[in-house]
Design a binder for these strands. Structure first.
Lengths: 229, 229
DNA sequence: CCCTTAAGTGTTAATTATACATTTCCAAAT
DNA sequence: ATTTGGAAATGTATAATTAACACTTAAGGG
């Protein structure tokens, strides 16, 4: 038997998830109304505690599943928040994760059960603890990532239009982009499949639908290609 | 009194530090010989446990001070490592930090006390646990950061030559850079002070010494400038 | 005073990024 | 059948940035 680290302080380790979704125009975050103390009734990120048999990724997956019913969610560890008094109830360190989901495809009975609601990142409600700080950090990380990895597609339905993709990038980056330059760049990357099919909702003419070609992307990466937008 | 989170599992929270230094030619990491079980006698990153009254940054600072005697060290939180069996002695989550120091200016009596040695990143010894993974992640982070923030100077003495700076970037980025282009870029940033003084060690002619102008940099940042190399 | 060695220095070509306006297509209304 | 409205689709010219490249200078040591 190996000797243990006697006498060292132990702490509660929480995982909080910044869940991003995209709805036509706006980047949104899924927030829950806390139904337990402290700060019961306030808005909060979905969270939970790390269990003995789990690593942090597993905990984050479990927590994301609880709220969305989705099993394979794109997520990334963000940062460990550790101010001594960040949670007034008890010393708790929280490791924040951000996740990207298709806003149309989560289980609404589950999110309703947690009184969860989507909030536009531009008008967030009052949040508990250091959750605003977590969200700011998540936004920054997402902004950087989305320019160097093809993760934006996680926020869109499988088939999407160029305009949707552009709107997505605009709302993440917080700036207007030139339509032609955007399309030229995307096409130059050569990682989308243009479908025959059109989306007829946005205009009479309709606009072509595209799909992300994950295999082609993978192959290009192995050949030294790197996504850059 | 607020209610506590009963029944949740608590864990030990460690902090491990990847301490980078730069010695003429090579990017190096300061490693210690572990003088306690488990894995006593093997190489390891300097680490310690989070204490009740500390946040993670404070713990990292404390640990860095213990080994180097330096109080204001540039450091950044890297990632939380949480595999269930990462430490065979006991369930421990470790939050890794990386730090940049001037290799010439740490307290050698302290590092000797921990049997610490500098190892070139290109020839690292066997390390305990998941420390190799931590180092890989730190290298990647450092590579990205060094191109977008003027943190490389943390690894150099206050006065340095252009050649030293270039060698530093080359060893961090792992690629040769063109001398003229490098100097042109650096000069275009306009954040260095060229001194009258020359360093006569490297050549007969001697090479001019430079200093990072932190104030000027700050001012430029406030005016919207962003470092890019 | 000649040799050695690293320091210092600019220009051109290639690539990449930006700015920008017109035509096409389709359905709905007449 | 024809017109009309509204978003989709499309390419080029210019500017800005990045990459490639070789000779001269300075100073100490022999």
């Amino acid at each position: 038997m190996v000797q243990k680290y006697q006498l060292e302080d132990k702490v509660l380790l929480a995982v909080d998830c910044i869940i991003f979704g995209f709805d036509e125009e706006d980047l949104k975050i899924l927030l829950i109304k806390r139904n337990f103390e402290p700060e019961k009734g306030k808005w909060s990120l979905m969270g939970g505690f790390l269990k003995r048999h789990e690593n942090l990724n597993m905990a984050a997956n479990r927590i994301l599943y609880q709220l969305t019913g989705i099993e394979q969610i794109y997520m990334e560890q963000l940062y460990a928040f550790s101010e001594v008094d960040r949670d007034p109830a008890e010393r708790t360190i929280s490791v924040a994760y951000y996740a990207l989901i298709n806003i149309k495809e989560h289980d609404k009975t589950l999110s309703d059960k947690h009184s969860a609601k989507w909030h536009s990142v531009t008008e967030l409600p009052d949040l508990i603890f250091d959750h605003p700080e977590m969200i700011i950090k998540a936004m920054k990380r997402l902004r950087r990532r989305v320019s160097s990895k093809p993760i934006g597609f996680e926020l869109l339905p499988e088939k999407f239009t160029m305009r949707q993709l552009q709107k997505l990038y605009e709302s993440i980056l917080g700036e207007k982009l030139d339509k032609r330059n955007f399309i030229n760049k995307i096409n130059a990357l050569d990682i989308l499949i243009k479908l025959e099919e059109k989306d007829m909702n946005s205009s009479r003419k309709g606009s072509f639908l595209y799909q992300f070609d994950a295999e082609k992307y993978q192959q290009k990466v192995e050949e030294g290609f790197s996504f850059k937008l």
